[in-house]
Design a protein around this nucleic acid. Structure first.
Lengths: 340, 340
DNA sequence: TATTTTTGTTCCATCGTTTGAACAAATATA
DNA sequence: TATATTTGTTCAAACGATGGAACAAAAATA
């Protein structure tokens, strides 16, 4: 069963009375090899169950055709959908992907970067962990000459290709909608402002409130990791405060779910007493009772575009100009914010 | 910035007036190299920012120190926790892991196996997709001489190391508990019986019913993919039937969540009218209202043990005996089934 | 027919690391 | 002191695939 040691290009050569290099050229469709030999080589390759040795060819060619993808968490529809679409696009172009997750931890992220660089991937497509403020490891990717594309969570200083949505505008969509539903006291369960996307959401939220002449209360902007517990705890905190908001805009769906749980546990009518809007269009948002309004981030598009950005880099290695693609956010109104 | 081309063992050798092989041996702590040179080499390695070339060393050694992990879905706490623990254990032993997901699709699974074999991982640790009935690709792994360890979803015919829980016994725990809560009409939202673990859960469920002299109704055993929609749809089906069950045992937590939603939407009191038990102890089961009783599968242990099984194989390559580790399931009783 | 061009293949060096064998120098044993 | 052993290093051949240069044979052109 395990007796047949893998066959190499040499075995094919020997079987046909050719040289290894002729076989290699035949397999790679070199123009100077006759159709006859090409055919014979390919047939023999099948017969001997030949599998090209990835390691040797990558070593020789200096190219692995592997792309590393780093995402914060894998159990999020947004991220796993982006990865799926990256994979689809890259597979079509002869690349395989290696998916890794940072679990939102800086240390883990650094370790994953090191592993990927060690395996000598041709490029890395990443979305940064919540914890990450030190960009040193991302600089390392660039300095190693490995292509780098960021999506969603990316910092401008890195000066690399980026795909994401307009977070600032998303907040305007949310606030405008809530105002249209007669909400006047809108709180924001935010992500940490050291991350660009969350900073922009906060910024957009404030500007939109100002636009509608609504008060900006600092204790109504609470930053967190946006985990389910964070949503629960912060919602409780908002309920316990002297003045309650009549709407809560949560910068992440999972935290929004936690917030919804607390609202229901406190017998607060959603959306009548407090309206709720999340962010990311995670599948469960349409399944909760009431269903949660949210922002569609176009995960499928983001994945496809990020992969294309990488492929572009590979085919134009000297190109220096950086490409930032910003998609339009889309508000999905569901029960949790539909008052009228 | 990208000017410094990566330095090799040759550069270190040149800088110190040594041969590449001496440097290689020094870096690998060969006993015949003097402490003095070892030190000098290691210092120079740091100075030149030397990174060993994974491809060449893997090629030469015929060993990549990479392990592929294939799981059905990544957005499940059970699987991601198993992976986390596999990774922790393997990292300690000088291995890196490559995580892939099959999305429960046979075709995807085959593709992932091919990719992993191509990259020449030293081993694969996997849990099979729901769809998988053809074991051909798993045979391929074995025939390539790559180590294979299965966990949770694994078939005995493959005759490889396995780590899982006692699924048959799990059903007994669930049924015994429901009976103790005065449930008499227990339905089972099952997984497909072509998958061993689900077959055993069904088997255990039937035997346990029999043990308590309860009727086994065939239309109360409904097999599915156990997605959230499946849970919803089957629960509705059970409610629409002439005779309603007074308890539902669901073979997966996500489907149990779907079932719970439908129960609540129909204003059925849980657990008073219908009790509910899930499977896997996904984190959300403790967050729902009411919280869901479930089975703890010991994901942390499974990951650790699977990794150890692999490491064992690597250190005793000739060993032929197959190791099957079966852990004890643990019932976690929460509100959804606590009637008394 | 002599010369150039094209075609199909072989030759050989290379990617970077590893490893057994060989060898000289230093040290230990007789 | 002669011989055996140990120590530290170099040599050379891999691992498997690749691709430019070289070369002979066939075909095309003069």
């Amino acid at each position: 069963m395990e007796n047949k040691k893998k066959s190499t290009i040499k075995d094919i050569a020997a079987a046909l009375g050719l040289t290894p290099s002729a076989v290699s050229k035949a397999l790679n469709n070199h123009p100077r090899i006759s159709e006859k030999t090409k055919l014979a080589v390919k047939e023999m390759a099948v017969e001997l169950d030949y599998q090209p040795n990835f390691l040797s060819s990558a070593l020789r060619k200096g190219k692995s055709n592997l792309v590393g993808v780093i995402i914060p968490r894998v159990n999020s529809h947004f991220f796993s959908s982006v990865v799926e679409n990256i994979e689809k696009m890259l597979n079509l172009n002869g690349y395989n992907i290696i998916m890794t997750q940072s679990n939102e931890l800086y240390a883990k992220e650094c370790q994953e970067i090191d592993t990927l660089l060690k395996i000598q991937v041709d490029g890395i497509i990443a979305s940064m962990a919540n914890e990450t403020t030190n960009l040193e490891f991302y600089e390392k990717i660039k300095s190693r000459g490995t292509e780098l594309v960021l999506f969603d969570r990316g910092e401008e200083e890195l000066n690399v290709d980026y795909v994401g949505i307009d977070d600032y505008k998303s907040s305007h969509l949310v606030v405008d909608h809530l105002v249209s539903q007669n909400c006047k006291r809108i709180a924001h369960i935010a992500g940490f402002h050291h991350i660009r996307i969350y900073k922009e959401r906060i910024h957009g939220y404030k500007d939109a409130l100002e636009k509608w002449n609504l008060d900006i209360q600092d204790n109504w902007i609470i930053e967190s990791n946006l985990r389910i517990e964070d949503g629960r705890q912060i919602m409780q905190q908002l309920l316990d405060a002297p003045e309650r908001p009549d709407a809560v805009y949560v910068a992440g769906d999972i935290a929004a779910l936690g917030a919804l749980q607390v609202l229901l546990e406190n017998n607060i009518k959603v959306p009548e007493e407090i309206a709720l809007v999340g962010f990311s269009d995670e599948p469960f948002t349409s399944l909760t009772q009431p269903s949660i309004s949210t922002i569609n981030q176009h995960s499928d598009q983001i994945g496809k575009l990020a992969a294309e950005a990488f492929l572009n880099r590979m085919s134009h290695p000297k190109k220096k100009t950086v490409n930032r693609i910003i998609l339009e956010p889309e508000l999905i109104v569901r029960q949790s914010s539909k008052r009228i």
